[in-house]
Design a protein around this nucleic acid. Structure first.
Lengths: 147, 147
DNA sequence: GAAGATTGAATCCTCAATCTTG
DNA sequence: CAAGATTGAGGATTCAATCTTC
């Protein structure tokens, strides 16, 4: 009948926003630990996936835009990926301001391994949640963006 | 009929996990910017709230446990809160290993201001989302924890 | 000057190692 | 030796300032 203690209710105010955020963090942790099994972090997997599915090496600015982060973040992210040997910076001959990131063969393998474990998690996830509940979440997402 | 482009579908795989995480991040950003109006960050507000609702100054270890993070995180968090003048470290006379954090009057005011703007956001949020959708999210949270 | 990338400093977080006190 | 806190190092992120190239 009561899953959360009375003290918890009193202290956190039972606010749905924070409950939601807490749930999301739990899911995120799950994704992180899943990817850790193939020596990847969530953000690194995202970058690798963007790069692996793009036909041409992408500009750091394009990557930042695609992943909704600031450019300086991508500079450092690519530094780390390059240190891992998963990505390589290539200069653009046409416009020397541009720096493109190219997936290395090792990076491509790593991304594929990540995609595999994530697909498995996704399958378990879809199985566990009710179909209608999934739709509810999509509706909520829209609400959040509009308030 | 299509909200997300075909390229997006292809590249991100339309995975519900990532859609969910994306939604959560949007909500989190909203919380952050709301708290920023009273010069607070999400994590700082959480610590201040824990401290303000506790009767006695809490140990850093207790705080870390309550907020589900590692102890070293709390050491640094309290460093920053102390620098802001919102919290003060107090020594425990009984056990000298313990360091307790005490909310200052300024910290208490700040927390109250944060609680106010968050309550307003919470109200808008509850209004915007369908009641059933909220329940769906809670069910999903349980699922996530069990997979 | 404006666009692209980088650097430096800050927050928030983790882990492993260390100090201090019990 | 246990327990509590801290320190040091690093990942991921932001912002403001800077450098290079157009």
């Amino acid at each position: 009948m009561k899953d959360r203690s009375d003290t918890e209710q009193a202290e956190q105010g039972g606010q749905s926003i924070f409950r939601l955020l807490e749930a999301a963090h739990a899911l995120e942790d799950r994704v992180e630990s899943t990817l850790a099994s193939v020596e990847l972090s969530g953000p690194k997997f995202s970058v690798l996936t963007a790069l692996a599915t793009a036909k041409e090496p992408m500009t750091l600015g394009e990557l930042a835009a695609k992943l909704s982060c600031v450019k300086s973040n991508m500079t450092q992210m690519v530094d780390r990926l390059e240190a891992d040997g998963l990505v390589q910076r290539v200069a653009d001959p046409a416009d020397r301001r541009l720096v493109r990131a190219e997936v290395t063969p090792k990076g491509r393998e790593r991304q594929a391994a990540g995609a595999e474990v994530i697909a498995a998690l996704e399958a378990k996830f879809s199985e566990a949640i009710e179909a209608e509940d999934s739709l509810a979440v999509v509706r909520m997402l829209r609400s959040v963006c509009s308030i």
